[in-house]
Design a protein around this nucleic acid. Structure first.
Length: 456
DNA sequence: GCATGATCATGC
DNA sequence: GCATGATCATGC
């Protein structure tokens, strides 16, 4: 074997060698590109090619990191462009979960932490209809988890493992956790694994970093690149951690967030506004969003780092005097033409409903005065996503295909999800597959369902 | 100018 | 009081 152009025992040497990839494709950087790199079929083709032809070692699935002596795990992962911005094309998979073996593991010496403590991330821009050997590497980043992130990941790991120990591996959901998810592998297949403490077969799953977490790494890396290129310090993005100190001190993340609201429970919204110096008008549509931000200790324009990384959806809920939510919760409007093409498992609706939500809850009194009564984190149970939401989705597809886009599932037809207009006004129409123009619509979560779910 | 999330209005 | 339809406000 020819001598490698880097020292596999030395972290700096490995990183420096990897950084030469930035701005290049495999075709550009390799003098001799083997004619027969097989990119077809397997998804990790690009990563495999980097390992084999650039770093010169055989891809493996050993329990230790790829560069064992340096403790570094190499991960090639795709980027895509959304509105001219680079974002993660997908979550980053960090190893299959062995339901049986993990039952007796402890975090400190877990398979996960042994392999994934130091990630060498190679981000390449994936482009459709392009030969993978022409994909250009855009970012190389050695990622050591910041202490507060690692602590949240530990809490996520414990939560996933606890569910497996309870014999509930089949109920795992990516929305259960914050940064580290238990994502399905080959979700369309019928492959099932046995799990401890339950006869129920479970879908195979892997640990993964959510796409939202990957996006913060991408943003930070691009800001660094830009700062380096222009030899200036870029203004930090308006994103700030609100619970880092508490979490490092050992507090559960969600408890830490709830604690931030405790001093204001029982106060009217305008009293909270006064205490926190909020000048927004109570009628403004972002009034409650501003109040939430201020209670979290942020300025109106700042965003919560943890919520962003975990892709947590923050919602204000106002309960009427009769105790039911004043509004249902809307999702983004769909395009009829796109919707009928979607498969349920990769649909926008399933994606939106699999996230974790954070509700800030106010009770309205007879005069309409809102009083803060509490907060709740919530994820839609997998069984409801797969039954109720799926039924609404299937029915919606069915009716659009039958050219009945005016008559989509109403609130009275489904306990959890319905379809309703969602445009600028009644003139905001888009084409159905048959070419007719019908007002823009979206899926909505029924307020009554949420209320029941939150135990309100 | 438009998408998105939030909220209002109407009629039963 | 509620389901359904319609529209607004904000930020990019």
């Amino acid at each position: 074997m020819k001598r490698q152009p880097y020292d596999p025992r030395d972290r700096d040497s490995i990183v420096a060698y990897a950084e030469r990839l930035v701005g290049n494709s495999l075709r550009e950087i390799l003098d001799e590109l083997p004619p027969a790199i097989d990119f077809s079929g397997h998804k990790g083709g690009f990563g495999t090619a980097i390992e084999r032809h650039y770093f010169g070692y055989e891809p493996n699935s050993r329990p230790e990191p790829d560069f064992a002596e340096a403790g570094i795990e190499l991960k090639a992962t795709p980027l895509k462009t959304v509105r001219k911005k680079l974002v993660a094309k997908e979550r980053l998979v960090l190893g299959m979960i062995n339901y049986v073996a993990i039952e007796s593991e402890e975090w400190e010496n877990s398979t996960f932490i042994k392999k994934n403590s130091h990630l060498l991330l190679v981000f390449y821009l994936h482009e459709a209809d392009t030969d993978p050997r022409d994909f250009v590497v855009r970012i190389v980043r050695l990622w050591d988890f910041p202490a507060e992130d690692l602590e949240i990941i530990r809490q996520d790991w414990e939560k996933i493992v606890a569910k497996i120990r309870e014999g509930k591996a089949h109920e795992l959901s990516e929305g259960d956790t914050l940064y580290l998810g238990a994502c399905t592998k080959s979700s369309n297949s019928t492959d099932r694994r046995t799990q401890p403490n339950s006869p129920e077969p479970a879908k195979p799953r892997a640990f993964s970093l959510k796409a939202s977490y990957m996006n913060t790494i991408i943003d930070d890396s691009l800001a660094r690149q830009e700062a380096h290129r222009r030899e200036i310090v870029i203004d930090p993005r308006p994103i700030r951690s609100v619970a880092a100190a508490d979490v490092i001190a050992g507090l559960n993340f969600e408890d830490a967030i709830a604690n931030l609201f405790t001093p204001y429970i029982g106060l009217a919204a305008d009293e909270i506004a006064e205490q926190l110096g909020v000048t927004a008008k109570p009628g403004a549509k972002n009034y409650y969003a501003v109040l939430t931000n201020r209670m979290l200790g942020l300025d109106a324009k700042e965003r919560v780092a943890e919520f962003e990384k975990a892709d947590i959806q923050v919602k204000t809920m106002r309960l009427t005097t009769s105790g039911r939510p004043k509004e249902d919760i809307s999702f983004r409007a769909f395009k009829y033409v796109d919707l009928v093409e979607q498969d349920w498992d990769t649909s926008d609706l399933k994606d939106a409903l699999s996230k974790r939500f954070f509700f800030v809850i106010y009770q309205l009194d007879r005069d309409g005065t809102p009083t803060l009564v509490g907060t709740r984190f919530w994820t839609m149970p997998v069984s409801d996503v797969e039954r109720l939401a799926r039924r609404c989705f299937d029915e919606t597809q069915h009716r659009i295909r039958e050219d009945r886009a005016e008559y989509l599932p109403k609130k009275s037809e489904n306990r959890a999800v319905h379809v309703r207009p969602h445009g600028r006004d009644s003139a905001d129409v888009i084409a159905t597959p048959s070419g007719r123009l019908v007002c823009r619509k979206s899926f909505w979560l029924n307020g009554t369902y949420i209320k029941e779910q939150l135990g309100l």
